[in-house]
Simulated scan of single mutants.
Amino acid sequence: MARMKFLCDAERCIECNGCVTACKNENDVPWGIQRRRVVTINDGVEGEEKSLSVACMHCSDAPCMAVCPVDCFYRTEDGVVLHDKDACIGCGYCFYACPFGAPQFPQEGAFGQRGKMDKCTFCAGGPEPDGSEAEYKKYGGNRLAEGKLPLCAEMCSTKALLGGDGQTISEIFRERVVRRGGSGAELIGWDTAYGKGGQS
């Protein structure tokens, strides 16, 4: 069975934000919410600047799931971490637990009242029936049900952002590192997100 994962190759990312735009358009993401964002490390330092496209990493041991008091998070058979907006109470615990800043909360009203949490769904929709209007309204497109990969990864012009089966992605990245003459140590955050002992 496939385990869906994201990987961003920092050697290829050019900070074009195409992935961010693709996500917003495909999923009709509400104003003020960024399911995906591009983070630049050592910004402006010549030769050391690296950019990464970051979203929910669909962790094997997701801290958001561990801290949610109403258990609105669940994991699909493909390893995608999703949530039920109807169960969410907007407490914000997941926001503080996630090391990637994936959970986002819209600020509603003049006094910034927190709404229901929103995050990357790996273009896998939510608990409503696949392809339904209710699913699209709450969670966006369900490309996985259509046999497609997340649009952010498909739209990446340099193929820096990879999305799909974790084993396939790790093999692609391993080949790239070998061609570049590296060891794979530049893969930022893999052990933190997915644990040690294999990239599957």
Rank of each mutant, 00 (worst) to 15 (best):
G198K: 09
A66W: 05
N42P: 02
I89L: 00
P129E: 04
G166Y: 14
M155S: 14
F111N: 13
D61W: 10
G126P: 07
C16A: 09
G163V: 04
L161M: 07
V177Q: 12
G166F: 15
I14W: 03
R75Y: 01
A193W: 00
G125C: 03
P127K: 06
Q104K: 01
A62E: 03
I41V: 14
P69N: 01
M65T: 12
T76I: 02
E128T: 11
G109N: 08
A55M: 10
S53A: 12
P30K: 11
D71S: 11
F122L: 02
C13L: 05
S170C: 10
K138L: 00
C152T: 05
C91L: 00
T40C: 11
C91D: 08
V54Y: 03
G44T: 11
G112P: 14
C56W: 04
K5F: 00
V80I: 06
K85M: 13
Y74M: 03
Y93N: 14
C156V: 02
K138T: 08
G32Y: 09
L52H: 12
V178C: 00
G90D: 12
P63L: 04
E186R: 03
P106T: 06
D28N: 11
G92F: 05
D86K: 10
L7T: 11
S53L: 01
Y194C: 06
E77V: 03
G198L: 00
G184F: 08
E108Q: 00
E26P: 02
L149W: 13
D84V: 12
F105V: 01
S157V: 05
I89N: 01
C13V: 02
P103S: 06
K116Q: 02
F105H: 10
E186P: 01
Y93Q: 14
T168A: 14
G163N: 04
R176D: 14
S51N: 07
D78T: 09
C123M: 01
Q107A: 13
G126L: 03
N27H: 11
Y74P: 00
T21C: 13
E46A: 15
F73A: 00
C56L: 07
C16W: 01
A185W: 07
L7A: 12
A193P: 00
N142V: 07
R35Q: 15
Y96A: 15
G79F: 08
N142Q: 11
Y74T: 01
R37D: 00
G181A: 06
L7V: 09
S157E: 13
D84R: 14
L144P: 11
K119M: 05
P127G: 00
V29C: 09
L187M: 13
D61G: 03
V177P: 03
G181F: 12
C59K: 13
T121K: 11
C19E: 04
L151H: 12
D61H: 12
